[in-house]
Each structure stands twice: as C-alpha cells, then as structure tokens.
C-alpha cells in the first residue's frame, strides 16, 4: 500500500513537475530568445545598450521606492490593528477581515476612478491649505497617492499572512507575560509581538512588493511612470528592449523575494540547525 502510494507520488512528481516547468519556462525562454534574436545572429544589445535607455532606471527606482513605502505603510497600519483586534476586540475580527478583503473584489479600474474624482477636487480647494496636501500627493517624483492606493490594494495580502502568523502564536499569553514584566504597550509590540510575527510580516511584505512592481492600471490611468508603465510605453518603439526589461524585472523581483525570504527564514533556520546539533534532554 505504502509502496503504491509512494510510487504514485513519484509518477505524479515525474509528470506534474516537468509540465509545470514547461508552462513557466517556455514563455520565459521564448521571451529571452526574442530579446536576443537578431537578423544576423544573437546579440545582447538589448541588455547592454538598453540599460542606458532614458527612463529605465528612474522608473525602476520609482517602482522599488513605491513598493517599499507601500510595505511600510501597510505594516504600520495592519500590525497594530490586527494585534489590537485579536487581543481586545475579537468580535470585530470578521468585520476587519471583510474590509481587508474588499480590494480583491473591487477592480483596480474602479478604485482609480474614485481616486481620480477625489483628486479633481483640487481645483475647488485652491485657496485652502489642503491644496498643498494635494500637490504633495501628486508629486511626480514620488506620488504619495500611489502609495495610498497600493497600501489599500496590499491589505488582502498583509491580512492573510499576518492573520495566519497571529494564530500560530499564543498572542494573549505572550503579551500578558511581557506586560507583567514591565513592558509598555509599544515595547510589547516591538520587542515581543513583531519578532514572533517575522515570517508572517516578511510573507506579507513579499506579496505586496510583487504586487506593486507589477501594477499597471492605477499608475497608468493616473499618468505616472513606474517600471510597468514605462515597459508598456516603449513596447512599440523598442519591442526587444521592452521584453529584455521584462526579463530583468523578473530577475529583480525574484532577487528581492529571495532576499526577503532569506532574511525572514534566517532566524528560524539558524535555531533549528542548532536544535539538530544538540538535542535537548529533559
């Protein structure tokens, strides 16, 4: 029986894995081929010369900065909220969950229509201090409005991973232990709760970052030019460069994901290695 199961597992692994690999690798391979294929043979010009093309670095940096800002805003909002709900307002859990899941069912195009309407109030506010706020929100170099929208769009990802993380620890006991030892609420949150949510925080951050790096609709409708928009813009004039940039962005995203997961996994891996080293005797 067990043999049969394991052999079935092997066959399914033998079939499914290569199929999945093909599904991912063929388009990537084709794209790479397209980006280096020239009439007179193979050329890496799109990668070498292309990197200097106007707009690439600025748009890429803009995307990364937006991503990091989104993560920071999202975490600052969600970690204290979810901890407070879990500890003091368990009845509100469902409400918060539904609120956080909303962005998944609201299409970005609808979201951005709303944002555009709000931004258009700027004219009416020309004489008030709020005007400056609107100016800051729309700053070309760093459009805060995008950070706000992206923060909203990242709520489902943050909620899901933080919620799972919070369920995995005995939050109430940890918090009460810290409090009885003299820790203030902020110290408790920062020194006890957050470190034990590390994997969840990183997981949420990774997903949010990936979302921001690939987001097109909102940025393009509001006429900003992060990486995704830039890529689409140059597609017609420099098709090869556009694909090469897509490949690069794929690499960058993977790199960032790898970096974040290593950072997140670092501690637990270190301690589990230690555990293997010297088993405890009770």
């Amino acid at each position: 029986m067990a043999r049969m199961k394991s052999s079935m597992k092997l066959t399914s692994r033998g079939i499914v894995l290569p199929l999945a690999a093909l599904y991912f690798l063929v388009p990537i391979g084709a794209s790479i081929w397209f980006s280096i294929n020239e009439v007179d043979g193979v050329s890496f010009d799109a990668y070498t010369d292309g990197l200097g093309t106007e707009g690439l670095t600025t748009s890429l940096m803009l995307s990364v900065r937006l991503g990091l800002a989104t993560i920071i805003c999202g975490l600052l909002l969600m970690v204290p909220t979810l901890v407070a709900v879990a500890l003091y307002l368990p009845k509100l859990r469902r409400v918060v969950e539904i609120l956080c899941m909303m962005p998944l069912v609201v299409p970005p195009i609808a979201l951005v229509a709303g944002v555009t309407t709000v931004l258009s109030w700027e004219q009416d506010l020309a004489d008030t201090p709020l005007y400056m706020t609107f100016q800051a929100l729309r700053d070309e170099n760093f459009p805060l409005v995008l950070v706000l929208v992206y923060t909203v769009m990242s709520l489902p990802f943050l909620y899901r991973s933080l919620d799972a993380g919070l369920r995995a620890v005995d939050l109430r006991t940890l918090v009460e232990a810290a409090r009885s030892l003299g820790a203030s609420r902020l110290q408790t949150l920062w020194q006890v709760v957050v470190p034990n949510l590390r994997a969840a925080v990183m997981g949420g951050a990774v997903l949010s970052l990936a979302m921001v790096l690939g987001e097109y609709t909102v940025a393009s409708v509001l006429s900003y030019r992060p990486f995704s928009v830039w890529m689409v813009e140059i597609k017609d004039s420099e098709a090869q460069l556009s694909v090469a940039a897509a490949m690069l962005s794929l690499l960058i995203t993977w790199g960032l994901l790898l970096l974040l997961t290593t950072l997140a996994g670092g501690r637990s891996r270190k301690s589990s290695r230690r555990e293997n080293g010297k088993k405890t005797v009770s």
Binding site: V169, D170, T173, E176, A177, A178, V192, P195, N196, R198
Partner: peptide, 12 residues
C-alpha cells in the same frame, strides 16, 4: 511576577 498555565516564554 506571573507564571502562566500555557508556555509563555518569548519564542524569539
């Protein structure tokens, strides 16, 4: 000082 019923050490 308080000792709890469930294990309450900070895992980190």
């Amino acid at each position: 000082g308080m000792v709890f019923q469930s294990y309450s050490l900070f895992p980190n």
